[in-house]
Deep mutational scan, measured.
Amino acid sequence: YKIYPYDSLIVTNSISVKLPKDVDRTRLERHLSPEEFQEVFGMSIEEFDRLALWKRNDLKKKALLF
């Protein structure tokens, strides 16, 4: 996945969300650098992957990456 800054990946309720063209809309968190991922989620990507799907989705919603 290509890395993008968190600010360019957050999704708000506005209709005209302009995400970069090559971003996987269903896995926005994968486009964060490991350092920024840790900062946003408070855990590593590996720890995040071990969580239940509902928990990952809940965290993504709170981080505006859903």
Rank of each mutant, 00 (worst) to 15 (best):
Y1T: 13
Y1G: 08
K2R: 08
I3C: 06
I3T: 10
I3V: 13
P5G: 05
Y6W: 04
Y6T: 00
Y6R: 02
Y6N: 00
D7R: 14
S8E: 14
S8Q: 15
S8I: 13
S8F: 15
S8N: 09
L9N: 00
I10E: 02
I10K: 15
I10D: 02
V11T: 12
T12D: 11
N13T: 10
S14G: 14
S14T: 11
I15C: 15
I15S: 15
S16P: 12
V17Y: 03
V17W: 03
V17S: 15
K18M: 11
K18C: 15
K18N: 15
L19C: 06
L19D: 04
L19G: 06
L19H: 08
L19Y: 15
K21A: 15
K21R: 11
K21V: 13
D22K: 03
D22E: 08
D22I: 04
D22R: 03
V23Y: 02
D24N: 07
R25S: 10
T26S: 13
T26I: 06
T26G: 10
L28S: 02
L28C: 02
L28Q: 02
L28W: 02
E29W: 01
E29G: 00
E29A: 01
E29N: 01
E29V: 01
E29M: 01
R30I: 04
H31P: 01
L32W: 01
S33E: 04
S33V: 04
P34F: 11
P34Y: 11
E35G: 09
E35K: 13
E35P: 09
E35R: 10
E35N: 10
E36I: 06
E36W: 03
E36D: 11
F37P: 00
F37S: 00
Q38L: 14
Q38H: 14
E39L: 14
V40H: 11
V40K: 06
G42W: 06
M43V: 05
M43P: 00
M43T: 04
S44F: 08
S44Y: 08
S44D: 14
S44P: 14
S44V: 13
I45K: 07
E46R: 09
E47Q: 13
E47G: 06
E47N: 10
E47P: 03
E47S: 10
F48D: 00
F48Q: 00
D49P: 01
D49V: 05
D49H: 07
D49T: 06
R50A: 12
R50E: 14
R50P: 03
L51N: 04
L53W: 11
L53D: 10
L53H: 10
W54Q: 11
W54G: 10
W54C: 12
W54H: 13
K55A: 10
K55E: 15
K55P: 03
R56M: 06
N57S: 07
N57F: 08
N57E: 09
N57A: 08
N57M: 11
D58E: 14
D58P: 02
L59N: 02
K60L: 04
K60M: 03
K61P: 00
K62P: 02
A63P: 00
A63E: 03
L64A: 08
L65H: 01
L65V: 03
